[in-house]
């Protein structure tokens, strides 16, 4: 099986400082977008079961950090396909999808399966897998929480707001996975070091002839909501009394 796992490197929003409503985006460390770890894990598991190879596809739309890329490779991918260049910077899922499709063509990779995360941790637009599928005219299943490979077909369960949907999807296909699908492995330091030796193909986006409508980022700010932040400590009796007092003040208990 020729498997492609798509992963995005993003600024870690859980460690992103703000000054007032100014969001200091680029002061946050870089990480693999959360659910892309599940995508890589699933790709590697399928390879381990059926043989083949896993190409990690990364378009550098935001920050880049070599160690984080190595960490992603160390989860069991065989090689990396990297698209870089000024024109792919910023959020524009259609452009990113085109970049991946064209870079795969140029790389000579004809995937049987492309695995993405349900949504990226910075944008969560959940758009890329659907767009890749359209551009390549492949079947797609998004928000897959359970998956089985059977005679050149996938049986997937899509996890939706009001229930779920079980689909049979012929390969080649594109899927996006949710965090429930698996428990991503954590590579060892040694594995991460060794991953530096894996094959890496870097493509310059300017050579891919990308045509797309532009999306302009006009403004970005931190969401601020001031809270009272009163700390309640002490014996159980003391804290319970204070909670009850607050609930009474708010008219919840009378």
């Amino acid at each position: 099986m020729e498997i492609v796992a798509c992963a995005k490197l993003v600024y870690d929003e859980t460690q992103m400082p703000a000054e007032g409503d100014r969001l200091l985006v680029d002061q946050a460390p870089v990480k693999i977008s959360d659910i892309d770890r599940n995508a890589i894990e699933e790709a590697v598991r399928i390879k381990e079961e059926l043989g083949g190879r896993v190409t990690l596809a990364v378009v550098v739309t935001g920050p880049f950090d070599e160690t984080i890329l190595k960490e992603a490779l160390a989860m069991g991918a065989d090689r990396a396909l990297l698209v870089e260049g000024e024109i792919v910077k910023g959020h524009n899922p259609y452009r990113t999808a085109l970049a991946i499709v064209k870079a795969l063509e140029r790389d000579g990779t004809k995937p049987d399966l492309i695995v993405c995360g349900e949504g990226s941790s910075d944008q969560y637009s959940c758009a890329l897998p659907a767009m890749i599928a359209e551009i390549m005219s492949l079947p797609v299943a998004t928000f897959v929480g359970r998956l089985e490979v059977k005679d050149n077909k996938l049986i997937v369960e899509r996890y939706l707001e009001g229930g779920s949907e079980v689909l049979e999807v012929p390969l080649p296909a594109v899927i996006s996975v949710t965090s429930e699908i698996n428990e991503p492995r954590i590579p060892t330091v040694l594995q991460i070091m060794k991953a530096g030796k894996k094959e890496k193909n870097s493509v310059d986006a300017s050579e891919l002839d990308l045509r797309f409508p532009t999306i302009d980022l006009v403004e970005i700010r931190a969401y601020v909501r001031e809270r009272r932040r009163e700390r309640i400590e002490g014996s159980v009796e003391e804290v319970v009394n204070r909670i009850v007092e607050v609930l009474e003040e708010k008219g919840v208990i009378r």
């Binding site: 600024y11 703000a18 941790s121 302009d216 931190a222 969401y223």
Partner: peptide, 18 residues
Amino acid sequence: AATRMVFSGRGVEKLETS
């Protein structure tokens, strides 16, 4: 023009397109 949440809600961004 559209405003939307980014970074899991840590931020709010305004985007414009044609």
